[in-house]
Design a protein around this nucleic acid. Sequence first.
RNA 1: GGCGCUAUCGUCUAAGGGUUAGGACAAGGCCCUCUCAAGGCUUAAAUACGGGUUCGAAUCCCGUUAGCGCUACCA
Length: 476
Amino acid sequence: MMRVRFAPSPTGYLHIGGARTFIFNWLYARRHGGTMVLRIDDTDIERNTQTSLDSIFDGLNWLDLGWDEFYRQSDRLDLHTKSAWAIFEKGMAYRDFTPASAAPAEDSPGGWLFNPGMRELSREESDRRAAAGEPFVLRYRVPRETRADVVVPDLVYGNVTKATADLEDFALLRSTGVPTYHMASCADDADLRITHILRGQEHLANTFKHVLIFEALGVDVPKTAHLPLLMAPDGAKLSKRKHGPVVSVTTYRDAGFLPHAFVNFVSLLGWSPKNDIEKMTREQMIELFSLEGINRANATINFTDEDPFDPKAVWLNAEHLRSLELDDLAAQLGPFVTQQFPNATPEKIRAVTPLIRERIRLLREVNTVADFFFLDQLAPYDPAELIPQKGDAAMAKRVLTKAREVLADVPAFNHDSLDAALRGAAEELKIKAGQMFQPIRVAACGRKNAPPLFETLEVLGKETVLPRLDAALGIL
RNA sequence: GGCGCUAUCGUCUAAGGGUUAGGACAAGGCCCUCUCAAGGCUUAAAUACGGGUUCGAAUCCCGUUAGCGCUACCA
C-alpha cells in the first residue's frame, strides 16, 4: 500500500510552495490509490505559533482536496527519542560533550565533520560523563571507514551520490534531549510506514542523512521524489519572510481564485502532463499525474509589486470561471458582492452572473465590473462620456431624450423588445446603432465599458434605467 | 569555501540522437462586434558558452559560466 505524507511545520502561513508539495503528494496518492497523511511537524516549540497552524489549515481546507490521516509530531516525541537511543545502543551514534560554543569553525579543513575526540570516547567514559550530568548532543556516527558513499535513488533526480567523507556527524538529539528534525522526521516516516516522500528539492542534500537514519532504524528507506523549487522573480527561493503575503495561498483565496484553478496553476509549476493540455479537471489531473512529468529545473512564479498574481494563474482562473455552471458561479460570487454591497440579493446576483462571466478573471472583480448593478446612486462621471463617436452633445441629448421616451413605453423591458425599440429609434434619428447605444450605456452604467446593452438594461430594470437617463440629461 | 542539483522564447513548458525546436500565458497586428470582454486568425520571441562523441547533438560526455540548494544542538 502506498503511503505519502505532507509535513509542514507551523512557523508561517501556508505558501504556494507548500501548497504545491501538498498537491503533488495528494495527486500521487490519488493516482495510485494510496493514503495521504497530513503530519504537523511542530517540534520547534520556539517558532511554532497557533496562528500559523490555523493559517495552514485555512489554506489546506480551501484547496478542498482533503487527506486521509492526521498526526502531530509533538504527540510522538517519545517515539523519536526512543528511536535515537536505539541507534545509540547499536553503536551507530555517540555522545558529543563539546559545548556548542566550542564547535570547530565550519571551514576548518576536515574539522567540521565532527568534534575531535568525541566519537572515540569509550562507552564507559561516555556513560560516566552523562551520569555526572554533563550535557551532550547525540550524534550519528557516519561510517566513513566502512562505506565510501551514500546513494539516494531519487525518483526525479536519479541516483544522487555523496561521499561519506563529505558528510558530517549530524545531531540526532539536542543537548536538551529533544530530537532534531532529521531524527523526528525519519522516526515518524518509518513508524507511519511512509513509502514515498515527495518534497521540495531543498531537502535533497538532507536525504543522505535520512538514508543513514532509516538504515540505522532497520527499516526500508522510503522512495524519495524531490521537487524543483519555486522561485520568485528576484531569483530567490520563494519564502514567506522575503516575499510576504503574496506567496500565501489565502491571498489567492481572498482575491477570488477558484480553489481548483489555483490547484491547476500550481500543478503546472514543475510538472507537465506533456500533452499541451493546460486547463484540467481534477479527474484529468489525477489521471495524468506521474513522476516522469516532473521537471528538474526550478520554476519562477511571475509576479510583480503591482500584481501579486502570475498572469497565467489569472488566465487559468478565468478559464475555470467560464466553465462553471451559472448557479455555481453566482454562489461563488455571492460573498464577494455582499461584502461590498450588503443589500445585493441572491436573485440580483444570479441575474448579473451571465453578463459578467466572460468579463471577470477573479471573483472579486465582480465589484468593479458590475458595481452599477448594485449601486443605488451612480458615482459621478464625466458628461463628455455621454457623447457618441462622431457626435456631439446635441446628438447625445437627442439620443437620451428619444431613449427616455421609447423606453418609457416599451411593451416589455426585456432583451428583444429593447433591441427592437432602440434600433428603431436609431433609424428614426438617422444615426448608427452604436451612436444610439453608447450614450444610453454610459447613462445606465456610468462608464463606457459594460456588458451588452439590452441584457444590461433588462437586469437593471425600467425603474432604475429611466431615472439614470434623466440624471444624464440633467448633466449634459 | 566544501558538497549537491540545474540550465529551451520575458514566464510556465514540449521535443530525450534526425522536427521549419511545438504549445500556453503575456506582448503586437488583423477579423468578429453596440462598448468591454470572449472567440478566431496571425507576428515577434529560446536550446548559456566552449570543446568532444557521432553521418547527424537542444538531446550523450567533459570543461567553463551562471543560478539555486545544503553545509546548525532550524525545519
